Simulated assay, not measured.
Amino acid sequence: MASTRDDDVLSRLAGNRDGAGPAFLAPHHLAAAQRLEQLVRWAQLAPRVTMSYDLANVGGRARSGNGVETASDGAADARLRLSRIASALPADCWGVLFDVCGLGKGLQLIETERRWPRRSAKLVLRIGLDQLASQFGLSAQATGSGTGTRHWLEERLPLIAEDAASAG
C-alpha cells in the first residue's frame, strides 16, 4: 500500500531539520495519516502490483476483483467510512491525502500531475491532515476532564493479612 517513499514524505515533514522551530507535521498529523492508510488498506482500494492466483478471478470474468459485489463486510464498511471522510473534506485536500496515504505518491509527483506550483501539495497535505485529525478526534494538545485520577476502589485494600488486622 504505502511505499517507503510515502513513509519518507511524512517522516521528513514530521522531522525537525534545523532544530530551531517546530516540525511541519505534528504527531497528531502522523496518527491521522496512519489511520487513513489503515482504512484504505481495509477498503482494499489500492491497485494490485502482483498477479492474483485466486481461482475466482481467473478466466476473464466480467466482475472485477475489487468491486462492491466482491468486497467483504469489513471492506465495505471501510469504503463507507472513507466516503464519509471524503465528503467532509475539500476535494483537493482529499485528493492529496488519498494520493499520499493511500497510493504512496510523492509530493512532487502530485504537483506535476495537477500542475500545481512547487510546495503547494505540502501545504494542502497539512491542511487536509489538520481536518482529518479533527474528524478522528485527534489534536496537538491532550485534553481531558481535569478532575484528576479516579480509582475504581475508594481506598486501597491491604495486601498482607497482618496489615488487614492492624487496619481493622
Rank of each mutant, 00 (worst) to 15 (best):
G67A: 13
D54I: 03
R81P: 00
G102V: 11
A26H: 12
M51R: 13
F24T: 05
R126A: 09
F24I: 05
A167F: 13
R17G: 01
Q135N: 02
A76E: 02
L55M: 02
N66Y: 11
N16T: 12
S139F: 12
G104C: 10
E113M: 12
G137L: 12
Q108M: 13
S64V: 11
A33K: 01
H151L: 11
A14Y: 06
F98L: 15
R114Y: 07
A56M: 03
I85F: 13
A46Q: 10
A20F: 03
Q34T: 10
L82E: 05
A2L: 13
G74K: 10
G168P: 04
A43Y: 02
L97C: 05
G59V: 08
L36N: 02
R81K: 11
S120R: 15
L125V: 10
A32I: 04
P27V: 02
G59F: 08
E154V: 09
D130G: 04
Q131C: 08
A91P: 03
G148Q: 05
E154Y: 02
E154D: 09
I127A: 15
Y53R: 12
F98Y: 15
G148M: 06
G128K: 14
C93P: 00
R84M: 09
A88R: 14
D163V: 06
P22K: 14
R118P: 14
E162I: 10
C93T: 02
N66G: 00
V68N: 03
T70C: 03
G21V: 05
L153N: 07
S83M: 09
R61Q: 07
Q131E: 13
D99S: 15
C93E: 12
I160Q: 12
T143P: 00
G95A: 14
P27N: 03
D73F: 03
C101R: 07
L97S: 04
R41P: 00
S64L: 13
V58W: 06
G59L: 08
G15P: 00
G67P: 00
C101H: 08
N57R: 14
G168V: 14
C101P: 05
L36R: 04
R12M: 03
S52I: 05
R17Y: 09
L103Q: 15
A26N: 01
A20C: 03
T149I: 15
L80P: 00
V58R: 12
L39P: 01
T112W: 11
L103R: 15
L10T: 05
L97D: 04
I110P: 05
T143D: 09
L30C: 06
D18H: 10
T147G: 04
I110G: 10
I127W: 08
V124W: 13
A121R: 07
D92M: 14
S72A: 08
S87C: 02
K122I: 11
R84H: 11
M1W: 08
H28S: 09
R126M: 11
Q135S: 06
A43L: 04
R12V: 02
